[in-house]
Nucleic acid binder design. Structure first.
Lengths: 244, 244
DNA sequence: CGACACTTTGAAGACGATCAACGCCGGTGG
DNA sequence: CCACCGGCGTTGATCGTCTTCAAAGTGTCG
């Protein structure tokens, strides 16, 4: 049992005993790179917690395009929205983009646990509410920001989410996947990376260096409605201050 | 107390007594056209249910643009995401675009009620999960659909949401507001309306007629990942079948 | 070594934003 | 009663951005 599970905010405020009685219901599930966890249209049977690895959540349109909705890494829940929305069938596909491990629970377990432990229900509500906020923000970004601004915002989030050193880190996923996640073509993404240099982000190959937070704020955050309240940008500023 | 409140899905599965004990905590609040309910940055103090009228939820960016995130009409909850996400301060502004009435509850009431009544907590989870799904879908649409496709999808939703006759109805809000809601310029919106005629939607002035669902499906839904499962499009087909 | 996925670059084209101008309407005030 | 104004909606011309199509370089894995 990794820290990503044990210290998951979903179980905050529960006693060690309660936590244990919830977690024993989970079964370990391993996926190889490229393996499918579930596909659009199949019955919703499980709730998952990612223990290790990376999952791609995506949809396909009738005209054959593939659309990445999310990238789930260690600690992230999977399927909670479909279960709570009383979806019988999956709305998205989930695929491992690298060798991964998940904790698998029956779908009904989630609702039962929410009914039994009010603290768990509130944690779950908090988690889904936060996800809603992110999704709404993303819709706003897609509608108002340029490709380069989207990429800059994404790179900041990646850096914080994976606890990387802002001064230099490697992209944790392929550029193709990131481009798909951002709703742009791989060509546009590639071209865009070079345009970020004058705005405080240097990308060479797979390596990213966030060199000037002030420039990034002027270039991206100034056009986002969250702007001054952006937890990601603040976290980056705090992380940078701690460094020599 | 209107039906929009009494029959709100939020109270489904609760006894009449439980429902009453929840609703007595609400205070009626009236807003005139253009009046502000709350603004970005002010403390989150209340949860609201819209009883009548229309509210615009919007953000402003540092560079002075106004961004409409949502349009809330009768029956819709307001503020539940910010409360459940433990936001202390509002992330958005809310303004009445016409004379409106709301039922106002203390913010803490929402969490207390969710803790006390598991059925209420599950309804709340369901509601927020559905909202998440919509927000994610909207992000996908913004990233992949053209302006004309966005408008066509929106007009279908408006027709179902307000229970209009698909063969002919008037737009319930100003075109400026709709354009802002869809993240496009008013000029683009205006031009776009004329392009929809060959695809099954005729707009003249404020009047909309949805004339050919098959064409709309080919033009919009075929490029959306929900496509065959789209509840809105299905509802429209069902509504059309019932008509002479 | 060869197949194949990933990445990059170039050139052409489509699309939406922007700026500008005008018609329309409802309200205000003289 | 009419002149004026501001908000709204439409239309035209132009421009920048992103997609698309094409081609070639890079890397990995069998």
């Amino acid at each position: 049992m990794t820290a990503a599970i044990q210290e998951n905010p979903l179980f905050e405020g529960l006693s060690a005993g309660e936590r244990h009685s919830l977690l024993v219901a989970g079964r370990l599930r391993r996926l190889g790179k490229g393996e499918i966890l579930y596909t659009h249209g199949t019955p919703v049977q499980h709730f998952y917690l990612v223990e290790k690895g990376t999952l791609q959540l995506f949809r396909t349109t009738p005209d054959g395009r593939e659309n990445t909705l999310g990238i789930a890494t260690a600690g992230q829940p999977l399927g909670e929205d479909e279960i709570m929305d009383n979806c019988r069938h999956h709305r998205v596909n989930a695929r491992a983009v690298e060798d991964s491990a998940l904790l698998e629970f029956r779908a009904a377990w989630l609702k039962e646990s929410a009914s039994r432990y009010p603290a768990f229900a509130l944690n779950l509500l908090s988690l889904i509410a936060a996800r809603t906020h992110l999704a709404e923000l993303e819709a706003e970004h897609q509608a108002t920001l340029s490709a380069a601004q989207l990429v800059a915002c994404f790179l900041q989030r990646v850096c914080i989410l994976h606890d990387f050193d802002p001064r230099g880190f490697d992209l944790p996923y392929s550029k193709t996947l990131i481009a798909s996640r951002l709703g742009m073509e791989a060509e546009t993404f590639s071209r865009t990376l070079n345009k970020l240099k004058p705005h405080g982000i240097i990308v060479e190959g797979n390596h990213v260096a966030i060199t000037n937070l002030g420039q990034i704020a002027d270039y991206v955050c100034a056009f986002c409605s969250v702007s001054g309240d952006c937890p990601t940008h603040h976290a980056l500023e705090a992380a940078t201050r701690k460094l020599p």
